[in-house]
């Protein structure tokens, strides 16, 4: 459906997207996972036809997406990363403005406004100015405003930033429902939990490049380990870490050592060494690695710097 071919975008000397190629199939819930500054919003704005790439091309069902061609944007809806609403206008007025920009009007527009407000639980607050809404309510309105014209492809740029868990769940449920009904979604986030929960396929992006692409399981199998043991940094644990270095991958980040044992390494050996150094077992957590570990493995960084 959406296709990017070696797309490059620069801001002055900074290359925000570096030769990205990507194909999104109809009906996918695609996650774009990467830390701040990775290039997610840039990719979204190119896909939405807000900017022109410096090299490469983006097409939607074969039609080139370009700022110069307003019609090429009709099948898409963009949920900007910021709350892109008129703060002084009511929820209903906001929906009306943007609905009309897509040529909706009259009874049809009214029905759609009613339906979408009800779908995210804002029907009772429809007359209130947006500035009186909580952050979560604004986020919900921000989302449905992009869906009023029933796009085929929804570009969701970090739609849950600064949202309470309740609103977050409301947004997730709504997006999953839309996706089940056939909406293709590209969802950018720096929360691996969100990508894990929502997305059928995930692209890991950093420094303008897509480092890995696949389902959650596919990504996890790319790791050369199946287990990860995490323990806090301390003088005693540093000594342990030094010993472990020969038995697998060891990374130290955010005050924690992360040890990924080689498949042949025996956990019993690990605990023996820990005990010898007088470290209590409750300091250690062993778990199946997460997307976080995948990201770390690929980029040497955590998702939240």
């Amino acid at each position: 459906m959406l296709s990017l071919r070696s797309v490059t975008k620069r801001y002055g000397a900074l290359t925000a997207l570096d030769g990205v190629s990507l194909d999104i199939a109809r009906g996918e819930f695609f996650g774009l996972l990467g830390p701040n500054g990775a290039g997610k919003s840039t990719l979204m704005s190119l896909a939405a036809g807000l900017r022109t790439p410096d090299a490469g091309a983006l097409t939607l069902d074969g039609i080139v997406i370009s700022p110069a061609d307003p019609a090429s944007r009709i099948p898409m809806g963009l949920v900007p990363q910021s709350i892109a609403l008129f703060q002084d206008l009511s929820a209903e007025q906001n929906l009306r403005v943007f609905g009309e920009l897509y040529g909706l009007h009259g009874a049809e527009l009214r029905t759609r406004i009613d339906e979408s407000l009800a779908a995210v639980g804002l029907a009772e607050r429809r007359k209130d100015p947006v500035k009186n809404f909580s952050g979560g309510m604004q986020r919900r309105l921000n989302l449905i405003t992009a869906l009023l014209h029933r796009p085929k492809l929804l570009l969701c740029d970090e739609p849950t930033v600064g949202v309470d868990p309740q609103s977050r769940n409301a947004i997730f449920d709504y997006l999953e429902k839309c996706n089940r009904e056939g909406l293709t979604i590209i969802y950018s986030t720096h929360y691996m939990e969100e990508a894990t929960r929502l997305c059928s396929r995930i692209g890991i992006i950093d420094h303008g490049k897509i480092h890995a692409l696949g389902t959650l399981d596919e990504l996890l199998t790319r790791l050369p380990f199946e287990e990860e043991i995490v323990f806090p940094v301390s003088p005693a644990s540093d000594a342990l870490a030094a010993q472990l270095r020969n038995n697998g991958e060891l990374a130290t980040l955010d005050g924690r050592h992360r040890f990924r044992p080689r498949p042949d390494f025996k956990l019993s050996a690990f605990y023996a060494q820990a005990e010898a150094l007088g470290l209590p077992p409750r300091n250690f957590t062993a778990a199946r690695p997460s997307l976080e570990a995948v990201f770390l493995h690929l980029t040497g960084r955590t998702l939240r710097e």
Binding site: L50, P67, G77, S82, A84, Y102
Partner: peptide, 15 residues
């Protein structure tokens, strides 16, 4: 700054 322009321009509206 609030991104309203982005939203407007992502609709079929020219600059």
């Amino acid at each position: 700054n609030t991104g309203v322009f982005q939203r407007i321009l992502s609709a079929p509206v020219s600059r």
